[in-house]
Amino acid sequence: MTSAASDHGAFSSPRARGLLRRRVVSVIMIVLTCVAAALAVVPLVVILAYLFKQGASALSFGFFTHMPKPVGEVGGGMANAILGTLILIGLAAAFGLPIGIGAGLYLAEHRGTRLANLVRFLADVLNGLPSIVMGIFAWQFLVKPFGHFSALAGGAALGAMMIPLVSRTTEEMVRTVPQALREAALALGYPRWRTSLQIVLRTALGGIVTGVLVAVARVAGETAPLLFTAFGNSFWSTNLRQPIAALPLQIFTYAISPYDDWHAQAWAGALVLIGLVLVISVTARFVTRARHGGGHG
């Protein structure tokens, strides 16, 4: 590498011209990275803008309270799908959170052991599992043996997808709790399990809540795992052993249909879904902020 510092000579020297060229290249490339960043942001802006334009015109109060109507009839809503999605999220949390948080605690308390490393690696692999594979697995394991689609199977599939995310955040957040705090609790006569749950987990709770919210936001919009499990339902159903409607499924069905009415409903559904996801994501950010802002001594 040539030294610029040794370049006190005249501006016309070849080295100085080389330096100028290098500087120009540098500025151009920096501008290009700037353009790349802008281009990376543009799709979100376009998608959100288009979504708001299409969705807002189709969205009405009735969308939240009415049932879907057959083609040709005006109005109708996705009340059943909104409820279905909330039920599925609840089921997913019931399946996924205990395992995710428990596995995360295990990983944090057994750091460096061979089993912990293996579990962590496999959690990452599970995180990269295609959601459609989770879908056919859930069908094979939870639908086929019982002979019918069910909300339970859908919730279990979504819950399984939450596990890796939740366990990873739990592990990282528990690791940020100082070892000294753990020792203080043990020295005070806390049994290990109470130290772990009442002192360590409670201290890390803010961060874990953030991770849980991120995981919920992710599975809330998942469609592929539900195609052959929750299946969808055009009627009002809260029976966990029966097929249940879900927003993403309804959006998919309506989007690939040939009817303009249904397209409008799909946009309204997408707006509601992304609103749900954004609210959860922003809440997660807010929880993280509050936690860091609060500051421990």
Binding site: A180, L181, E183, A184, A187, I199, T203, H296, G297
Partner: peptide
């Protein structure tokens, strides 16, 4: 440990 208390180098109040 309930009979033999301990205090550490750095303060460790439960936050």
């Amino acid at each position: 440990r309930r009979h033999v208390g301990m205090v550490f180098q750095r303060p460790t109040p439960f936050p």
